[in-house]
Design a binder for these strands. Sequence first.
DNA 1: GCCAACGTTGGC
DNA 2: GCCAACGTTGGC
Length: 141
Amino acid sequence: MAYWLFKSEPDAWNWDQQVAKGEAGEEWHGVRNYQARNNMRVMVVGDRGFFYHSRQGLEVVGIVEVCAAAHPDSTTDDPRWDCVDIRAVAPLPRPVTLDAIKADPRLSDMVLVRNSRLSVQPVTDAQWQIVCALGGLEKAG
DNA sequence: GCCAACGTTGGC
DNA sequence: GCCAACGTTGGC
């Protein structure tokens, strides 16, 4: 299983809205960046991801799961853009702030730190475990 | 709200 | 295919 990180400005789409979508989940539409799209194209159902609030919040707030593989983005007719569906799995007992991530030397290679502009990013197994632990999740995943 | 970093576009 | 101009993102 692979791990990812999904960024959203909470003004536009936030964790509570994601939770409200329940088991069915919701399209992660609106991505118009090739790198982010390519990341979604290689996701498989069951992959897990962090849900991160950018601009406001600046913290990882929850765990999501990919519940549909990449398909055309319903919000555009442009065939270049695909997206997956994700559903909320669980909130982090303690949200992990960007400050905390930056302060942890083990996380210095996270894409979130290295390339803050990429909206859908890969997360390594090690990074996943560390952020889950910081967030108060005993068993990751 | 500012602006640095990054990605994309388009003229050449 | 280069690169200047432009638009967007997101931390601050």
